[in-house]
């Protein structure tokens, strides 16, 4: 969809007017700023270990924008900040990475499920949710994010199988950044493409350039339309190359290909889209500054709010695992308070 400003011409996407194009830009910048600032906050010791998603913004924003507000998103840790596009406060997501219970949210408030850490295990949740909505006759669609590595997990396979059999209104969105920590895609699967896997689950599989936010948007929108029309799930494989460490604790130098990293950085998705909008003449210098300042300000406020959270009370250790903590748990809390107090 997005050309190179030279020999490869720009395409167009139906239904995206100037306003929608700029909204998409705002989302990309918000995610980019979140990610860049988070890395800084990590280095400053203000958040803990953090899973960097630099270069993945087009997949996240492109997919999210193709959904209606009532549609649900099931993120993995790589999409930890996807909720920002649905109104989850910056401070909430930062709190999650600060190991603070203020990082909890009610999925039903934002139609965004909790951040999922065990690989692939959110796929059956999303399949069950989409199926459940269909059973109730509601038009809701679900979209689940997962990585290339996740497609090796049993949970992915079982979730995709369910989605296919139940004809669940689900988009299985694979962030194929070609690495699972240090394991390259070539060691992950013998399939020529991940989209090829879709056929085994009885659903269409499509493959898009994950650095082209418009291509991601278009492919996801088609999948969402199919789901809403009752035609079942779609597997979307969005391809990029992970240009950053897996997370702040990772040093990729022993395994990554530095040339591919440089190429991925040159071709990164936010800059690509910015160039496109400029060529189209819908983005001015003043707008760029305004959007970036807005995003930076949100981050500043967000980290301040997160840091202003009082230290969590120890009672939170015992709350929420059960609707009604019973006597033994209350006694544990009382004993712990006595010991900590004395």
């Amino acid at each position: 969809m997005i050309g190179d400003g030279g020999s490869v011409p720009d395409g167009e996407v139906d239904g995206l007017g100037e306003r929608e194009l700029l909204d998409l830009y705002r989302s990309l910048i918000l995610l980019r700023k979140y990610d860049e600032r988070s890395l800084v906050y990590h280095r400053q010791g203000r958040i803990g270990t953090y899973a960097i998603f630099w270069g993945h913004e087009a997949m996240q924003a492109g997919a999210a924008h193709a959904l209606a507000d009532e549609d649900w998103i099931f993120p993995a840790y790589r999409e930890s900040a996807i909720g920002l596009l649905r109104g989850i406060p910056v401070s909430t997501v930062l709190s999650w990475w600060r190991g603070h219970p203020a990082g909890w949210w009610n999925p039903a408030d934002y139609n965004v499920a909790s951040i999922c850490v065990p690989i692939g295990t959110q796929v059956p949740h999303a399949a069950g949710f989409a199926w459940g909505k269909k059973l109730k006759g509601e038009p809701t669609v679900a979209l689940v994010f997962f990585g290339d590595g996740a497609t090796s997990e049993g949970s992915f396979h079982e979730g995709a199988t369910f989605a296919g059999v139940m004809r669940a209104p689900l988009v299985l969105f694979c962030n194929n950044n070609q690495w699972a920590i240090s394991t390259p895609l070539s060691a992950q699967t013998a399939a020529p493409t991940l989209a090829d896997k879709a056929i085994g689950y009885g659903m269409p599989g499509v493959r898009v350039d994950g650095t082209d936010v418009l291509a991601v948007y278009e492919a996801t929108r088609e999948a969402v339309e199919r789901a809403r029309a009752g035609d079942g799930p779609t597997f979307v494989e969005a391809v990029t190359y992970r240009a950053m460490p897996h997370a702040t604790a990772d040093d990729p130098s022993p395994y990554i290909d530095p040339e591919r990293v440089e190429e991925a950085k040159r071709n990164e998705c936010v800059g690509r889209y910015e160039g496109y909008l400029r060529r189209l003449g819908v983005l001015t210098e003043a707008q760029v500054d305004e959007v970036k300042d807005w995003a930076l300000e949100l981050m500043r406020e967000g980290i301040q709010q997160a840091e202003a959270e009082p230290e969590p009370d120890v009672s939170l250790v015992f709350e929420h695992a059960y609707a009604e903590p019973w006597a033994a748990l209350r006694a544990d809390l009382a004993e712990l308070r006595r010991i900590l107090g004395g």
């Binding site: 190991g99 219970p101 990082g103 969590p312 939170l316 250790v317 544990d332 712990l336 010991i339």
Partner: peptide
């Protein structure tokens, strides 16, 4: 540890058995 999910890390020192709890 307690009969609850392992807490987020701001609370983990309260969850983990400590010298104080063992001395108690």
């Amino acid at each position: 540890g307690y009969d609850v999910p392992y807490p987020y890390w701001k609370l983990e020192d309260a969850y983990m058995p400590s010298v104080e709890r063992v001395v108690d």
